[in-house]
Computed example of a mutant assay.
Amino acid sequence: MLNLLRNLTLRQLQIFSAASQYESFARAAEALHLTQPAVSMQIKQLEEALGLTLFERIGRRITLTEAGATLSHHAKRILGDIKDAEDAMRSLSSADGGTVSIGLVSAARYFVPRQISRYSERHPKVDIRFSIGKRDLLLRQLQDNAIDLAVMGRTPVELDAHCEPLAYNPHVIAASTTHPFVDAACFDLHELRHDTFLLREPGSDTAAVASEMFQHHLFTPARTLALDSNETVKQAVMAGMGVSLLPLHTLRLELLAHEVSLLHVNGTPIDRVWHVVHMNAKQMSPTCAAFRRFLIEKTGAWLEGLFADLTPPAHAANPFVQT
């Protein structure tokens, strides 16, 4: 087994990592521009050399065994370190090239891709790749060096990570345009005690903010319904199924189209903060550092301008607006 690990090729690691990510030899083959038999053969050779089964086959679906999960963890870290080395070498010959990988919690998908587009217009040789995942997944990817940066709300105190504020992340109570309190100037949260509260699933940043709001107001909704995504929550709100506490930045299109209303509940908007996160041990390439700096310097003011006509007056002094 030791001889196998010494002679393990980068291509074999890439094939195995892709198969474990997609849980499909066919999808791994497509992503790597290989044939499915070629992927299957490489995995079989790995299993035979190790004397261990890396995948369980259940119909057309494959899942990692315990041995496969262990190898997958190390493969991600090795491939991440190799990418760091490639970026560092590339940056020596071109300060405006290289690859950056960034993970986003679901609510950040509503604004970070636009920032990526803005940056790419200025730096077309930089390849910025992003993925969407739950907070726990992003934390694992940061630890495994599978991503360079992550954008999330709550700071990950459980990691040895550096967190930098990006922008205010106001949370608002959204309702259908026919809700009886749409035109109410200001009212207490307890006035909504008979409403159904549509919540994100436990573990999400938004669910955590809602829980803190309920505790702060000593409030218990008559009924709650947990849903799996912001899009599902928004559709349920528009359908009049209930009200929801949501990040303001997920609602721009619905507010512009007058499909959702914001209720003026005392204590809202609830100000939270967007953060960009990287591991303290991360050897950040100049390309990655430049993109991170762009996010920190530009995101706050840009978001405030984007929502200026859709929200209550901005804070008198906003530390996220660069002057």
Rank of each mutant, 00 (worst) to 15 (best):
L4F: 14
R6T: 04
N7V: 01
T9E: 10
L10K: 15
S17P: 01
A18H: 04
E23C: 15
F25Q: 01
F25R: 05
R27V: 09
A29E: 09
A29S: 12
A31Q: 12
L34A: 03
T35E: 06
Q36W: 02
S40K: 14
Q42C: 14
L50M: 13
L50S: 06
T53C: 09
T53P: 08
E56I: 10
R57H: 03
R57M: 03
G59I: 05
R61V: 02
I62Q: 04
T63V: 09
T65L: 02
A67T: 05
G68P: 02
A69R: 13
T70L: 13
L71H: 04
L71F: 03
S72C: 10
H74V: 07
I82R: 05
A85R: 14
M89L: 15
G98T: 10
V100P: 10
S101I: 13
L104H: 06
L104N: 07
L104E: 06
S106M: 03
A107Y: 08
F111N: 02
Q115K: 15
R118M: 06
Y119C: 06
E121M: 14
R122T: 08
R122K: 14
P124Q: 04
K125P: 01
D127W: 03
I128P: 02
R129E: 13
S131F: 02
R135D: 05
L138K: 10
L142M: 05
D144Q: 15
A146Y: 08
A146R: 14
I147F: 06
G153I: 08
R154H: 10
P156K: 13
L159K: 03
A161L: 10
A161Y: 11
L166K: 05
A167N: 03
P170S: 11
V172G: 05
V172Y: 05
T177M: 00
F181V: 02
C186R: 15
C186L: 14
D188W: 02
E191F: 08
E191N: 10
R200D: 09
R200G: 08
P202R: 05
G203N: 05
S204A: 10
S204T: 15
A207C: 01
A207P: 02
V209Y: 03
A210N: 00
A210S: 01
M213P: 01
M213H: 08
F214C: 04
L218E: 12
R223S: 07
T224N: 08
L225K: 15
N230E: 15
E231Y: 12
K234L: 07
A236N: 09
S244C: 14
L245D: 04
L246F: 03
P247L: 04
P247V: 00
L248K: 07
T250L: 01
E254G: 03
L256M: 01
A257R: 11
H258G: 01
L262M: 11
L262Q: 10
L262E: 02
L263W: 05
H264T: 06
V265H: 04
G267N: 00
I270H: 15
W274K: 03
W274E: 05
V277L: 06
V277R: 06
N280C: 10
M284L: 13
T287V: 11
T287R: 05
A290L: 09
F291E: 09
F291M: 09
R293I: 00
R293V: 00
R293M: 06
R293H: 14
F294C: 08
E297K: 15
K298A: 07
A301N: 13
L303Q: 07
E304G: 08
G305Q: 05
A308E: 12
P312T: 11
H315R: 15
H315S: 12
A317Y: 12
A317F: 13
A317W: 08
P319L: 07
T323P: 13
